[in-house]
Design a protein around this nucleic acid. Structure first.
Lengths: 184, 184
DNA sequence: CTCAAATGAGACATAGATGTATCATTTTTG
DNA sequence: CAAAAATGATACATCTATGTCTCATTTGAG
């Protein structure tokens, strides 16, 4: 049963992320209802609201890590790498949103992992600059800000129905590459 | 006294927007403390939390309208118009954030005003396309999404200290114009 | 199939937020 | 200055969310 229970846990965490992304004030009762389980079971799984938020944050961090780890960086040009990252990460826009707005900032482990991911994003920006994809005079922090914003905005636009799911990566890619690239 | 009281009301609304932008779950006690007034006075002014959120939304809509109204559209090229809009609106990023995430969606007047502002943004995108600033093959909804995202991201980046206040408009302008522009 | 584990539903106590009322004090108005 | 209005502090009742517990029922393992 442990395997099944694990997958159920994951499903509950998924529902929690969706619900919280739609309404950051969602109560545990709403989250439990969205997950299709009883409120008592939610407490059995995660103890407290704090425990739930903690696990959601860890799950979000892990999802982003796994998506990034699946990219064959060595076989790709810098531009292809950017495209692959967008392809992998835009569907995780709700994770991004959760981490940047309501992640528990008390847990040092979560803070450390968030900072590591920010650092990795900055490293990618530097690589894109070195590879000539981004202009060298664009500040790295601004480029990273823009990437984050496009990832979340792309995900949100799909959710609102403003952009087709199959178009969003190309649109975001084009906007980023031209917007931060060297204007030849 | 009415003038003074009005300005005080405005100051309280300002504090409420700041506090709520930092923490959407902020209690009325926190908001009152941030505004430097007693919790009872907050109730005297706005009745209930719902009433406060309502007034904050109206204030945010009005601020954006006023900022937009101060722009001399007729004397500006399309590109200058975009720059002027960014200059006027990025400092209102917290208003934007509030309106897009926690505005009361029950009040038809607020919903209507929000929709009108979205329409005006879309109209500006069309004007920028017609003026050759934006590429004609960029979907209008995506361009509007990108503008919104850059406004909020720019404001947030200044708040986090990632970008200098005096740089953010130029950075956002460049990123938008190149990102959505015709790649010549 | 049988039994142990897990679950859902509900009761319950508690804590925090909200809304109302009161009163002494301060501020504004005339 | 004197009256009126507004404010802050406080007390109070209420409501909601949270966390714990129990028990009948369901589910899964052996």
């Amino acid at each position: 049963m442990s395997a099944k229970r694990l997958s159920r846990r994951d499903a509950v965490l998924d529902a929690a992320i969706s619900t919280l992304a739609a309404n950051p004030n969602a109560s545990l009762a709403e989250i439990a209802a969205a997950a299709g389980i009883g409120r008592a079971t939610l407490h059995r799984y995660f103890g407290s609201r704090h425990g739930l938020l903690n696990e959601v944050a860890r799950r979000a961090l892990r999802d982003v890590d796994e998506a990034a780890a699946g990219i064959p960086y060595d076989d790709l040009s810098p531009a292809q790498m950017l495209q692959a990252v967008l392809e992998a990460v835009i569907p995780l826009g709700d994770r991004y949103y959760f981490l940047s707005t309501m992640a528990p900032s008390h847990d040092p482990e979560i803070v450390a992992a968030s900072e590591r991911q920010s650092r990795e994003l900055a490293d990618m920006v530097e690589a894109l600059k070195a590879g000539g994809v981004f202009a060298s005079d664009v500040p790295t922090r601004w480029a990273a800000t823009t990437l984050d914003a496009m990832i979340w905005a792309g995900w949100a636009a799909v959710g609102k129905g403003d952009v087709a799911r199959n178009d969003v990566v190309d649109l975001a890619y084009r906007t980023i590459v031209l917007g931060l690239g060297r204007n030849q």
